[in-house]
Design a protein around this nucleic acid. Structure first.
Lengths: 229, 229
DNA sequence: TAGCTCAGTTGGTTAGAGCAGCTGACTCTT
DNA sequence: AAGAGTCAGCTGCTCTAACCAACTGAGCTA
């Protein structure tokens, strides 16, 4: 009873005082006094808030208003996906479809509206990826950067973070579960096609490019799943 | 050090033993023994896992593997949005755009592929909404059901849950922040248009209908925001 | 048989003590 | 005087031990 309440009251504290990310919260003893609860209960409430990214705790230093990033959600999402996978569900595929849905919904709005700076950044990323592909190096990080940069122009922080969270969860689980026999050259070519489509301003073509890109990943996923049966 | 570790080990326990949602976890004393930690630490780890929806705790009954629903994410998302709003950011608008992006990405894939049963359910919902609109009653719940039913046919549980989570967070924050001067009849007509478009199998029209629906909500939002300045 | 009661199990809360990480001021050396 | 090392003090972290509160289910009562 008290625990749920404590969380609520700490959140209220943050909202009421308009505390920005990074602002210091009262120390544990102060919170005990302030909320009239024991140390333990206060700590449990803080732990829960920490798990939701609302609060950040630094040992020996203090407690602060969290960045409210989606890092905790990634945890939850990744775990859910892993657990589902082991239970024989196609949870990884569902996660991929989720990403595909969001990105296809966005890319058409994006086509032809990207500022030149972003296009240049994307071009650089594709070239870097082509270099990495030739060397046989891993290009996960570049892939991530490409998708992140693509939607930066939308001027919506939330969108960017959610997409990144989905990407993160997907790749973490994918690495854990299937040793990806990824052909970098195909991925590369598809990224270039996406970039070209967006640059040309043809939204239908952009949407098709995104779908094809995801279709490629999806195909490999289901093939792996089938071979495991 | 230990805390982070405990969470990880409990998660490992669930995954390794392939425990499904609802399966009972060891009791607190057993976990203490099993993990070699104090009651306190175990409880803090469980609290964090509970906040992520991985574990469900029932007072006087036991601890269970959670439904891994997105209920906790809704908390976090809603809080983040409220906090951002009070800090003068357009966080609520961003949340709406996120919903719009996902739904537009999905509806085109949906057009003409919905089973007859779902179409009937949607028809019933629209009619119910029209009745409610005439009576001046609140139609939030019906709106939620409409959007949920719309994407049921995709056979992707994750998608449905994420969308519902977004819907939830949005409406909770919206209710808290702006007394919505919503005109139910417009909303109603737009829902009917979405349904008709999906039924006709015209994906472009469906996408346009969704965009218009969201555009309507968005317009009211920015008007409210402007009047507050 | 239907309902109640109560003992036992489980999680919730409190208290107090000591451990561990970080900071900043103080001191000693150069 | 400038720099490096030390230490006191904050901070959060962990543990122990006791009691409170919610729920279940077996057994008793009517």
């Amino acid at each position: 009873m008290a625990a749920r309440d404590l969380q609520e009251r700490i959140k209220k504290l943050i909202v009421d005082q308009r505390l920005p990310s990074g602002a210091p919260l009262p120390t544990e003893p102060e919170l005990m006094r302030l909320l009239g609860a024991s140390r333990n209960s206060v700590r449990e409430a803080l732990k829960a808030l920490q798990a939701m990214g609302i609060v950040e705790i630094r040992h020996g230093f203090g407690t602060y208003v969290g960045s409210m990033s989606f890092a905790p959600m990634i945890e939850g999402l990744a775990f859910r996906t892993v657990a589902g996978h082991y239970r024989g569900e196609d949870s990884l595929l569902q996660l991929l479809e989720l990403r595909e849905a969001v990105e296809t919904g966005l890319v058409s709005r994006l086509a032809g509206r990207l500022p030149e700076a972003d296009l240049l950044a994307l071009e650089a990323l594709v070239q870097r990826m082509e270099r990495e592909a030739a060397e046989g190096a891993g290009l996960a990080e570049t892939d991530r950067a490409f998708h992140a940069t693509l939607y930066r122009g939308l001027d919506n922080v939330l969108l960017g973070e959610v997409l990144e969270a989905f990407w993160d969860a997907f790749h973490r689980v994918r690495q854990d579960l299937v040793e990806a026999p990824q052909d970098p050259r195909i991925t590369c070519r598809q990224h270039r096609e996406i970039l070209d489509a967006v640059r040309s301003g043809d939204s239908l073509r952009a949407e098709r490019a995104i779908r094809e890109h995801f279709g490629n990943v999806r195909g490999r996923l289901s093939r792996v799943a089938a071979s495991h049966r």
